[in-house]
Design a protein around this nucleic acid. Structure first.
Length: 276
DNA sequence: ACTATTTCCTGGATGC
DNA sequence: TGCATCCAGGAAATAG
């Protein structure tokens, strides 16, 4: 499932391969569409637009278009949800099941959005004049937040730290995998109330979270479920998960059996001995 | 203002 | 082999 490192992997692939390209035409699938904007609005905004650059904000992919309206510049926003994929393919490639959008590019390639489970979302929006970059997304970027900001963000939250990490209004981009993995490395139990962690513990958590996100980006993300980059290649950070998806298996540090519990409807994996 | 729960969706795994 | 059931989870909607 695409979280910050997986989305970053896709964004880097897009930035490298479609920056400066022009969207010549767009095909959008029928029926219940995974769209936040109406299909005709998306087609209108995309067709003929030059992709100036591609950026990430949390789990959102932002394709900045050269198209200007009275209100500002147009952006194409893609959220991959659980199973969404953006692929760059040669023209005329087989159309995979659950393909919802095909953008034909001037370079001859096609950019396709595929999403079996339809949790992904497509939208176009206009950047308001004077708007700070990506502020509409809300939350702090985990790789940019300072230790002081991180402490301030969680100090008053009564919710379990695991839930707080997943709250995109606080931090943007952390999902179930990296929440569990960072808590393991920081030695903190997922049920631990955020407010009862000391500033030192929170700072350590931030440090481990940043380290793990950077390592995962370097590994091209975690390919559990069906994540692939724009070229269809898998990442390999899943081989370095220490708790996520390892219920019942021995802890890599102490050999205790990894436990799983459900917090706010999400599974949380942890080592009962290494995490307090 | 917060926090917790429910809902959306399909493929893969499981059980009989 | 086939069919029913359960499970995965990001984020919006709803409830408390």
């Amino acid at each position: 499932m695409p979280e910050l490192p997986e989305v970053e992997t896709v964004v880097r692939g897009l930035a490298q391969r479609v920056s400066g390209d022009v969207i010549e035409s767009v095909w959008i699938g029928r029926k219940p569409e995974p769209l936040k904007s109406p299909a005709h609005e998306i087609a209108l905004a995309l067709e003929g637009a030059n992709i100036e650059r591609v950026e990430r904000a949390g789990k959102h992919i932002i394709l900045q278009l050269n198209r200007r309206t009275v209100d500002g510049e147009a952006q194409w926003i893609v959220h991959l949800g659980m199973t969404g994929q953006l692929l760059i393919v040669p023209p005329g490639s087989n159309i995979a099941k659950h393909t919802h959008l095909i953008a034909r590019l001037r370079s001859g390639r096609e950019l396709r959005f595929i999403d079996p489970r339809r949790f992904g979302r497509l939208a176009v929006r206009t950047v308001r004049a004077g708007e700070k970059a990506h502020e509409w997304v809300g939350g702090h970027e985990p790789l940019e937040i300072t230790p002081e900001q991180f402490v301030a963000l969680f100090r008053k939250r009564k919710t379990p730290i695991k839930s707080a990490l997943l709250n995109q209004k606080l931090l943007r981009g952390v999902g179930n995998i990296y929440a569990d993995e960072s808590l393991f490395r920081a030695g903190i139990r997922p049920r631990h109330r955020a407010a009862s962690l000391t500033p030192a513990e929170l700072k350590a958590l931030r440090r481990h979270l940043q380290t793990i996100l950077k390592q995962a980006i370097a590994a091209g993300g975690s390919s559990i479920s069906d994540f692939v980059d724009v070229g269809g290649e898998s990442g390999y950070f899943q081989f370095r998960h220490r708790v996520y998806g390892r219920e019942g298996e021995p802890c890599v540090k102490c050999k205790s059996r990894i436990k799983r519990l459900v917090i706010a409807g999400r599974s949380a994996h942890y080592c009962p001995k290494c995490q307090k």
